[in-house]
Simulated assay, not measured.
Amino acid sequence: MSGSAREASAERPPATVAVLISGRGSNMQALAAGQGDAYRVVLVASDRPDAAGLDWAQAQGLPTFGLSPKGIGKPAYEAALDAALREAGAEWIALAGYMRLLSGDFVTRWQGRIVNIHPSLLPKYKGLDTHARAIAAGDRQAGCSVHVVTEELDAGEVLGRASVPILPGDTPETLAARVLVEEHRLYPAVLKEFVRR
Rank of each mutant, 00 (worst) to 15 (best):
A80D: 11
F65S: 00
N116T: 14
A51F: 14
R133D: 13
E87T: 07
G71W: 06
R48Q: 11
P123S: 08
G53A: 01
A94S: 10
A94W: 06
V115R: 08
I114L: 10
E91A: 07
D55R: 15
L121I: 04
W92S: 03
P49T: 03
A59W: 12
S103L: 05
T64W: 13
A59F: 09
R48C: 05
S68Y: 08
A88H: 00
A51M: 07
H131E: 12
L121V: 07
V107F: 09
L122V: 08
G104K: 14
K70L: 13
Q111P: 02
G73M: 01
G73V: 04
I135L: 14
P69D: 07
K126D: 12
A52K: 06
E87V: 02
Y77W: 15
E78R: 02
A45W: 03
A134M: 06
L121M: 06
H131Q: 14
L62Q: 03
A45V: 02
S68T: 15
E78Y: 06
Y98A: 07
P75H: 02
G127Q: 06
H118L: 10
V44E: 04
S120G: 09
G71S: 07
P119D: 13
Y125C: 08
P119S: 13
Q111H: 15
P75Y: 00
A83Q: 10
L95I: 11
S46E: 05
D50Q: 14
L67H: 11
I72H: 03
E78C: 00
A84F: 01
I72T: 09
W110Y: 10
L67I: 12
P69L: 01
A88P: 00
G71M: 06
